[in-house]
Amino acid sequence: MPTRSQPASPAPGGRMISPTAIGAFALLLWATLPLLTAQARRLPPFELLALSFGVAFLMGLPWLVLPTRAAPAGRQPGSRGRAWLLAFGAIFLYHALYFYAFAVIPPAEAGLLAYLWPLLMVLFSALAPGGSLGRRQVAAAVLGFLGTLLIVGGAPRGRRRPRRRAGRPAWCWVTWRRCRVR
């Protein structure tokens, strides 16, 4: 049930959608992204990106035609457009790098590299005003990175592959971290 602090979102038909339902749907989409991306590996990364954004646009189209609420007082003119552009650009770049990662390295390694952003959020939160890191956070981060190096750096069945192929997709978690820690 929506509260004053968390109002429900209007659906295209005028019905209200609970924040819990929206969050559950987002988690479902997020959980299926690696599986569906691994299944679509034969598609070129930018074609997959275009198809994904096309489906997302079609799903969000009903909300575009809804009337918007009044802007809160004190918001600078044009800030909504800049925020939208930044968010769209970050999400576009993240998913382009994510789909590229799944195209060039094995899915398990790509997923591991792509989901290092929570670790980076912990580390870079120390740079925020009033932020600090304790010994446990630093130790956990070092262990997390060492574990990632062991998993990604090890060559499967004695086969060697260029390490730079695994390094390029790692930029998707840097992109996501940059977007989230402000």
Rank of each mutant, 00 (worst) to 15 (best):
G154E: 14
P106S: 13
A108H: 13
R135H: 13
P72V: 03
T68A: 08
L133C: 10
V142I: 14
A96I: 12
L150C: 15
R160I: 07
Y115G: 06
G167W: 10
A83Q: 07
H95I: 04
A21R: 13
F25G: 09
G131A: 07
L64A: 07
L112Y: 00
A101V: 06
Q137T: 11
F92K: 00
G144F: 14
A110P: 00
V152K: 08
L93M: 11
P156H: 02
P156T: 02
W63A: 15
A128D: 08
L27K: 07
V138R: 11
A24M: 15
F124N: 06
L120A: 10
F25K: 05
F88A: 12
T148P: 03
A83N: 11
A40R: 00
G167A: 10
L66G: 00
E109P: 00
Y98M: 13
L27H: 05
P62K: 09
A96H: 04
L149V: 14
L64W: 11
G81E: 12
A56F: 04
G147M: 06
P107C: 07
G134H: 11
L149E: 10
P77R: 02
W30R: 01
G153M: 05
L113G: 02
R69E: 15
L120S: 03
L123R: 09
A83C: 14
Q39N: 10
M121F: 06
G158Y: 05
G89A: 15
Y115H: 13
A110I: 05
I91D: 10
P67Q: 01
A96F: 06
R42N: 07
A31R: 09
P19A: 11
A87M: 08
A83V: 09
G154P: 06
P129C: 01
P162E: 11
I151R: 02
F145G: 01
L133Q: 08
L119E: 03
Y100V: 05
G81W: 08
A40H: 10
R157H: 09
P72G: 02
L119W: 03
A110G: 11
R164S: 07
A96D: 12
S79C: 09
I91T: 10
R161S: 13
Y98H: 10
L113I: 11
F25M: 12
A56D: 14
L61K: 00
P34F: 02
A166I: 00
V65L: 15
